[in-house]
């Protein structure tokens, strides 16, 4: 899978964004679920919307898919407004659903053969079966598939039309670790083939593993957008220095740990500082700070 290391093939060809959202608002009754969201997804990238349950991830994606109305804002997906886009536009997008849409009495192959007839340029069933590792189960009825196999069939249906933009709403929920790994490989392959992927997840490792960029969603707004390694760069500058003094653990949270260390060393001219550690927040701590689930180290907002 060396192709994933190179820049997305489509990035240089098309200069417009796959998704452009400005000031998206969605309310259910009096409750504002999406509150002035701005979002850009570039052609050819894997973008992960990360956030806790109820942050507005699914609602946002449903608006982008054109299956939910919005109460405000501008939305452009593949150059069109999803609220008004037609069938040709839908054929260019792929959605991985929560059911196959054809009942459970069909076999895997029958299901794929049936839905191939909905697309302008479907992937041949045999290829699709191989790509999602379901060739062995082609003759099995959907009702007899395991949860992971069923999920892979739903993924196959989502990519069957060779979409330019694929929506994956919490794709690996319920998958075992092996199935997750193999699914990640599939997403990398799609990216290498030039497909733009917008996925939602509440798994940090999944976002870090797959995404070119991560958007952290909290209370209906994007609080940060960055490549996974740079997420919360400001938060990561804060370090915690810990040591033991008079039998008690002492802790200093600082942006200048070196200065704290200099003072500590000066105070211990005889030698070692017992229990000395310097730590910076890991991705999980950064994420929790961003979504406001815990107090930040220095008590800063966000």
């Amino acid at each position: 899978m060396t192709a994933m290391q190179t820049a997305p093939a489509a990035a240089g060809v098309r200069d417009d964004d796959a998704v452009r959202v400005r000031g998206l608002v969605k309310r259910y009754g009096g409750r504002t679920v999406v509150d002035g969201l701005d979002l850009d997804v570039r052609r050819g990238e894997v973008f992960a919307l990360l956030g806790p349950n109820g942050a507005g991830k699914t609602t946002t994606v449903e608006v982008l898919e054109g299956v939910r109305t919005r109460d405000g804002g501008e939305v452009t997906v593949l150059g069109e407004d999803p609220a008004r886009a037609g069938r040709a536009w839908r054929d260019r997008t792929g959605v991985v659903g929560q059911t196959t849409g054809a009942g459970n009495a069909l076999t895997v192959r029958e299901t794929l053969d049936h839905f191939a007839r909905y697309h302008a340029t479907p992937v041949p069933t045999a290829e699709l079966l191989a790509d999602v590792a379901l060739a062995e189960s082609a003759g099995t009825r959907v009702s007899r598939l395991s949860g992971g196999q069923r999920r892979r069939l739903e993924v196959a249906l989502g990519i069957q039309g060779r979409p330019e933009l694929l929506f994956l709403d919490e794709p690996t929920t319920g998958m075992d670790p092996v199935a997750r790994r193999s699914f990640w490989g599939l997403v990398r392959g799609l990216r290498a083939a030039g497909t733009t992927v917008l996925l939602t997840t509440h798994y940090l490792d999944e976002a870090a593993e797959l995404a070119d960029r991560v958007g952290v969603l909290a209370a209906g707004r994007l609080v940060e957008v960055a490549p996974p390694a740079e997420l919360g760069a400001d938060l990561r500058r804060v370090a915690t220095v810990r040591w033991t003094e008079d039998g008690a653990v002492r802790e200093v949270v600082t942006r200048e740990p070196a200065a704290v260390l200099r003072d500590l060393l000066a105070a211990h001219p005889a030698g070692e500082v017992p229990g000395l550690t310097v730590t910076r927040p890991d991705l999980e701590e950064v994420y929790l700070s961003l979504v406001g689930a815990t107090a930040t180290p220095e008590g800063e907002p966000r």
Binding site: M1, R87, A88, R90, D91, R92, H114, R117, Y118, H119, A120, T121, V123, P124, E127, A130, D131, I159, R162, P163, E164, G185, L186, G189, L190, A192, A193, G194, T195
Partner: peptide, 23 residues
């Protein structure tokens, strides 16, 4: 991963409602 998953450069119109009705 097969090359067939690459999005096509040009895409014909999707199948008609009648064709889908038959399927």
């Amino acid at each position: 991963m097969t090359a067939v998953l690459t999005p096509p450069r040009t895409r014909p119109a999707p199948p008609s409602a009648a064709a889908i009705g038959l399927a």
